[in-house]
């Protein structure tokens, strides 16, 4: 399992940041992704693998309205 925004999510071998965002339905472009506290730039989403037990934070930035 991994943690995404403090909620548990299933993990699978080869899971990367882009795949996780797709699976979570996180289509909003204005986000900040951190894996175990480390910032992941957008151009690295596909290459950045997520390991079992990782803590992923996907911060959606707009505070709206």
């Amino acid at each position: 399992m991994i943690s995404v925004n403090t909620h548990e999510q299933p993990w699978r071998e080869g899971l990367n940041v882009q795949a996780l965002l797709d699976e979570m339905g996180f289509i909003f472009r204005h986000i900040i992704v951190r894996v175990n506290g480390e910032y992941v730039p957008e151009e690295a989403y596909a290459a950045r693998l997520i390991a079992d037990g990782d803590d992923v934070q996907v911060m959606h930035l707009i505070a709206g309205g």
């Binding site: 925004n5 403090t6 909620h7 996907v58 959606h60 707009i62 505070a63 709206g64 309205g65």
Partner: peptide, 13 residues
């Protein structure tokens, strides 16, 4: 407008 902070990011639990 706190929906993302609250519901999606879970920043303010």
């Amino acid at each position: 407008w706190l929906i993302f902070m609250d519901m999606v990011n879970n920043q303010i639990p």
